[in-house]
Amino acid sequence: MKDPNYFLEGLVSNNENVVREIYKGSFYKVLSFISRNKGSRPDAEDVFQNALLQLAVRYKKNKFEINSNFEAYLLVVCKNLWRRELNKSKSLVTNDKVIELKNDNEDIALSVLEQERWELFNEYIAQLSENCLKIMTLFFKRISYAEMVKRFGYNSETVARQRVFKCKSKLKDMIKNDTRFKSLLEL
């Protein structure tokens, strides 16, 4: 397994051989994923290129570490970009105004921040206790409290709510204490 930095450095320095290697190693996995999820080849090409630009610009700004292998990481970035694309059509309201999304540098810039935020959240979700992780997984899947009561054998919905409240508070505290939090989510 090659060091992820080899690929990141290759991208930032625009090393054609490295970029070709990345295409050969990963493009078809992305194409396969996207074509199974309502997309076409041009969609896969766009997502793949934007993912690589995203990684390059992020590495250029701040030499971040990839803790898994590069291909797996790139696939996650592409999956998120595609998820983003599929959800773009929903009207996006933040701070009471609709955000106009453009398919250009601004769009890529936004997606970098969103990916970083997604990683921040997931990093701390993974640090939750096993019990918290179980109940928060159901919470994020938008499962009703009545259903949680059934699955965990709680006495009432109030107990389920209290469990979620406790775990979620712990999660939010960890996120808020992270130095990256302020810049990633302007409140």
Binding site: R58, I99, N105, L113, R117, R142
Partner: peptide
């Protein structure tokens, strides 16, 4: 942000006025 970021049928979009977004845009 947490709620939408953790559900497949949703995505947590960033605010274009975020300083980091502006910095990335410039780098791009």
């Amino acid at each position: 942000a947490l709620w939408v970021s953790q559900n497949e049928s949703d995505w947590s979009f960033a605010n274009p006025n975020n300083e980091e977004v502006k910095a990335y845009k410039k780098l791009l």
